[in-house]
Write a protein that binds this DNA or RNA. Structure first.
Lengths: 199, 199
DNA sequence: ACGAGACTAACACAGCTGTGCTAAAAAGGA
DNA sequence: TCCTTTTTAGCACAGCTGTGTTAGTCTCGT
């Protein structure tokens, strides 16, 4: 019987090599050969797992979103409702080196996805992540509302969208100007925003 | 004497062709030859104006920011302070097809700039635009404060950063999900945010 | 008309691109 | 040991890449 290699693990390994290339040299540099070199294999090896590079790109993009959702679903919701909300929302922000790298890659994918706008394209991954974060914002605000923690008369739908936009904006700022938009600064602003919603 | 062609105009013409390529097929497709074809000239013609493609990319990115600042500085600040603020901030948002295209291109440049992080790189353009928008947010809030329109006890520095992040987040949403995040929806949220700051 | 200056097109070159294909190596149950 | 299956490395090919160079064309003040 043949050598057993966990197909899924190898594919993730290769996708992570792609991430490193994208982050170091941009998506323009992410060819089959450069990714193979980064992963430490021959180009043929990479192509065994990914017959064409579109599939590799799509898988690598999907892996980002899976990693994020893994991390988010690993959070234990304990503490006050507002503490829980902060904990969840922070996880979506690139506040440490690892997540900053992840976000850089995600940004490159998003930009590419804006071009390939057809069906079955990268843009579906964008929509998935985008909708996921929006729903997270909605459910966190609903939890706060159920606890009676929120101000009266808030339009929750609108507040969810506003919070969602703020999160994405803060993420962008943390990524492109990490010296100015430090982790503590970002947390301050996020906490402050939630406090304006609280009774 | 030779044929007189406005050098600057031609360069902008070529840069706009690059924009169209980036928007249609992504930054990976923006080669000297594809841009030349899009512009309707030979590759040699493009290279007459841009000796190397790094210069072309950098110019095209800079042109985006110049166009934005042109539009912003063309605004006449009339009406109430809050109307002025809304008018300015809306101009930074991709609420119509033209500005959506512009934003897509800008996003591709930002992603690429995250990779080339050295001095003299694309990232300087990102910082310029980013700082410009932040200062705009600051000055708009300051104007509102001078009019006595704002609530008491606001930390203007923090509010400026929060507003800035919200703007960037809304811009992203308008770009990647224009069906959901329509122009009117975006305006609503922005207006609502400003109203929460007003006494 | 002329010719200097501004502009254009075309080719050359080495190197990279994605993809198809083939031969070999590795691995472990029989 | 052998043999099937999985995995790997390598080559080939046509086409694209950035850049250098060169020969040509156009334009317009004199």
């Amino acid at each position: 019987m043949p050598k057993i290699v966990d197909h899924a693990v190898r594919r993730e390994e290769i996708a992570e090599a792609l991430w490193r290339v994208v982050r170091r040299d941009g998506i323009r540099a992410a060819s089959v050969r450069t990714v193979a070199a980064e992963a430490g294999w021959s180009a043929g090896a990479v192509r065994y797992y990914f017959p064409d590079q579109d599939g590799l790109l799509s898988f690598a993009m999907d892996l980002v979103s899976r990693r994020v959702t893994e991390r988010v679903s690993g959070i234990e919701p304990k503490g006050s409702a507002i503490a829980i909300a902060l904990r969840y929302l922070e996880e979506a922000l690139p506040l440490d080196a690892e997540r900053r790298a992840e976000f850089d890659v995600w940004m490159a994918f998003m930009a590419q996805a804006q071009a390939e706008t057809g069906a079955g394209s990268l843009h579906e991954h964008v929509d998935t992540v985008h909708d996921g974060l929006r729903r997270l914002c909605e459910s966190l605000l609903n939890s706060l509302a159920d606890d009676g923690a929120l101000k009266n008369g808030l339009d929750l739908r609108r507040e969810a969208e506003r919070l969602h936009a703020l999160i994405d904006g803060l993420a962008l700022h943390a990524a492109i100007q990490p010296e100015r938009s430090t982790a503590t600064r970002i947390r301050q602003i996020l906490r402050h925003h939630l406090e304006t919603l609280i009774a």
